[in-house]
Design a protein around this nucleic acid. Structure first.
Lengths: 184, 184
DNA sequence: GTCTATAGTCCGATAGAC
DNA sequence: GTCTATCGGACTATAGAC
């Protein structure tokens, strides 16, 4: 499943794609733009990614792997420390919020064209978050906490800020607190 | 601000646009598709909406007016009945979930191209939800409830169902319960 | 593996008749 | 106010040289 052989060009193209999307938005994510940004030629780019869909899939996969790594590390650290995994995961997911600069918005937009693009993301979320919520002491409350985090992400992504930064911080702290109370 | 003069053709075109988007998805929402769906000609459609952006803006506005009407009615009913407004609004927003058939997904995708498209939605949400959360007995908890509802909407919209329908119902009931406890 | 050049498609928008 | 016809631009993808 994981082929590692040549990260150089392929990853450089993906970096360029993310740069385009972060700077110009999802609609401007065209193969030509990636070509210009990466410095490679069109034929070169299309050699590594036979079509635009393949490029988008690779972008999604990369993002999932990044998040999965962060969450996975948090869970292992919590297990080692003997602290509740739930709290660690909530904190990790909340922390990830800052690293994403509009890239998810582009992938969101792209998934409107091709819903299958989000399949890997769906699978990952169902496997991890769904399992955690079901195994929680209070499944409904756990689900609400994860859903609220989703709400934070999406409203922030869309610029729907009905909460001030201070209120967002307060909400974040409260979510962690609720998770701790539930886990104890 | 509101011009009502001739709802006939204009609304028919908007209906056609919603039909296209609900059936074929946001990427297929092209002027030509709306032309075919509505039965009018391209020139005729572009007479009422000089460009595609104008069409999208009108779609957004229409949707907001619909939601605002539902929420407004719920608030008035609650005031008349002397029950907590918070509960009524939460119930109304949760109920609205079923009426939307993928149209918001299209507008979401469109907003990736033109972020300004969502400005009316941003304003409405900030004015109503933001105010309610701030005036609640427990602002942070109120915000979390609204955010969780947002999470429900978006995850459903994207097909990220880490919750079974039964779990979603349980979450929904729990959210209403939390709102009642907070408002009492 | 990377390049140039170009074919072929789709879409938004305009012009002008009726 | 509604129509037909068409332009010009942007994009994906392919073919073939190096």
């Amino acid at each position: 499943m994981m082929q590692q052989d040549k990260p150089s060009t392929r990853d450089a193209i993906l970096d360029a794609a993310e740069a385009v999307v972060g700077r110009d938005g999802g609609a401007r994510l065209t193969i030509d733009a990636v070509v210009v940004e990466s410095g490679f030629s069109k034929g070169g780019v299309l050699y590594h990614f036979p079509n635009k869909t393949a490029l988008l899939q690779a972008m999604v996969q990369r993002m999932i792997e990044k998040i999965a790594a962060e969450v996975g590390a948090a869970r292992e650290a919590a297990q080692a420390a003997g602290t509740p995994e739930h709290v660690a995961v909530v904190e990790a997911v909340l922390a990830h919020r800052k690293t994403d600069s509009g890239i998810s918005m582009a992938l969101l937009a792209a998934s409107a064209e091709q819903p299958a693009l989000l399949d890997p993301a769906r699978n990952y979320v169902c496997d991890t978050v769904g399992e955690m919520a079901r195994n929680a002491p209070d499944p409904a409350l756990s689900a609400i906490i994860f859903l609220a985090i989703d709400g934070l992400h999406f409203t922030e992504l869309l610029g729907i800020n009905y909460l001030s930064p201070e209120q967002r911080d307060a909400v974040q702290a409260r979510l962690i607190q609720m998770t701790q109370e539930m886990s104890s």
